[in-house]
Simulated assay, not measured.
Amino acid sequence: MEVKARAPGKIILAGEHAVVHGSTAVAAAIDLYTYVTLRLLPLQSGENDDKLTLQLKDMALEFSWSMARLKELMNYTNIPCPSTPSSCSSQSLKSIAVLVEEQNIPEAKIWLSSGISTFLWLYAHIIGFKPATVVVTSELPYGSGLGSSAALSVALSAVLLAASNAVSLDETRDGWSVPDKTSFDLLNRWAFEGEKIIHGKPSGIDNTVSTYGNMIKFRSGELTRLQSNIPLRMLITNTRVGRNTKALVAGVSERALRHPEAMASVFNAVDSISKELAAIIQSDEKGESSSIAEKEEKIEELIEMNQGLLQSMGVSHASIETVLRTTLKYKLASKLTGAGGGGCVLTLLPTHVSGKMVDKVVEELESNGLQCFTASIGGSGVQICAREPN
């Protein structure tokens, strides 16, 4: 049996950093995906012949474990229970760390360890100890703030649950099926457990957006799913500059301690921007193109204001400023997305902007060594394609 799933990345449209201080944030799915394919294999003559193989196609890396070794270290007495998500204990994490270390991951790719740990834990607890090959490919740049780890956790959970017959599928379009509501919820809970292995204490924003798609509003731990009624297209520019999210968050908190009143005003302003943006996106007027243009103009202004407030928090970067200056020449509004200090920058592409102009902007940005994508905002969440062998 072969099962394939895809899960989208995400962007923060408004509210990053301020959300840590009680403000509202808005996040959305983008139509750039991580794909995971699972091929369950027939049992061989003995456990040492039966293997679990993980192929990371984009990096030309392959990892393999014998069933005997997995059973030895991962407590074979546990029976898989796909319908009941559970957390990875510290003891299990230590055992998995040994399995990962044995793979001799190249030093330059050692950051993959947490994702591989998530894979092993989800596999053992949803599928059990069955030989298989799992192939991962992604359209998302890693570690750039576009939710690549959550997309991996969601897509992995989807293929494993589908192979365990633990999900029910609704409509099918272009070969991809959408899980029903109960299955969505189960998938999201498993993906959140996977995210905990990677990030320790994730907010749940990334996996929720990747699972359900569209958009969410988030404040003080409460997630509200939004329905977008306006098509939005973004240019996403990857500065290729790595950043330390924890240090950037700490820096904003320290600035808030030094300037409590001023920073409280900044956070309140961001809260207002996020709420207004959510209201515009959800408004369901069946307008003419003029009303869409008016909404886009308002969104552009909100993007510019949000970026100015992020700069006042101290989380911009020279690479981000390069993108801002370049897009401003073409009268396009941009803001950083995620932690800042590098990472990715969003640029709204209003409906009146021609493809020729977008090509010019991309050419100029890429001449500075930056990486560009165009993406539609607020699209589908996780989807599954299952087929029997020929």
Score class of each variant (00 low, 15 high):
Ser113Gly: 00
Val134Pro: 00
Ala166Val: 04
Leu277Asn: 05
Phe119Gly: 03
Val345Leu: 03
Met74Asp: 08
Asp206Arg: 07
Leu99Cys: 09
Thr34Trp: 04
Gly9Pro: 15
Ala162Glu: 09
Thr172Glu: 15
Lys4Tyr: 06
His125Tyr: 13
Val178Met: 11
Ile281Glu: 06
Ile216Lys: 05
Val36Gly: 00
Val249Glu: 14
Met67Glu: 05
Phe218Asp: 00
Lys71Leu: 03
Leu73Lys: 09
Glu102Ser: 11
Val353Met: 08
Asn238Cys: 03
Ser149Cys: 07
Pro8Cys: 07
Leu112Phe: 07
Ala158Arg: 00
Ala162Gln: 09
Glu261Met: 10
Ser164Arg: 11
Lys298Tyr: 10
Ile30Trp: 05
Tyr33Gly: 04
Ser283Asp: 10
Ala14Ile: 09
Gly355Asp: 10
Gly287Lys: 04
Ile236Thr: 00
Ile299Ser: 07
Ser168Gln: 12
Lys217Asn: 05
Gly175Trp: 06
Asp206Gly: 05
Leu302Cys: 07
Ile30Thr: 06
Ser367Glu: 08
Cys372Phe: 03
Thr337Leu: 03
Gln91Val: 10
Arg255Pro: 02
Tyr330Val: 01
Ala68Arg: 11
Ser183Ala: 07
Glu222Ser: 11
Gly46Ile: 12
Ile377Asn: 03
Ala132Pro: 09
Ser177Thr: 09
Ser114His: 07
Ser113Lys: 14
Ala269Val: 03
Ser45Trp: 02
Leu93Phe: 11
Pro389Lys: 05
Gly204Ile: 08
Ser117Asn: 04
Ser148Pro: 01
Glu62Ala: 11
Asn214Val: 07
Ala166Ser: 13
Thr208Glu: 00
Gly341His: 06
Glu195Thr: 07
Arg39Ile: 15
Met74Asn: 08
Ile198Pro: 01
Ile205Val: 14
Ser95Arg: 02
Gly145Arg: 01
Ser92Asp: 15
Glu47Cys: 08
Ile230Thr: 15
Ser64Trp: 06
Leu332Lys: 02
Thr374Cys: 09
Glu2Asn: 14
Ser117Trp: 01
Asn165Gln: 14
Val353Asp: 00
Ser83Met: 14
Thr224Glu: 11
Val98Glu: 12
Leu324Ser: 04
Lys329Thr: 10
Tyr76Ser: 12
Asp58Glu: 15
Thr208Ser: 13
Lys4Met: 15
Lys356Cys: 08
Ala25Ile: 06
Arg173Lys: 15
Lys246Ala: 11
Ala339Pro: 08
Pro131Val: 05
Ile216Asp: 04
Trp111Glu: 13
Val178Ile: 11
Asn229Ile: 02
Ala339Val: 06
Gln383Ser: 11
Cys385Asp: 13
Glu300Ile: 06
Gln311Glu: 12
Leu324Gln: 04
Ser380Glu: 12
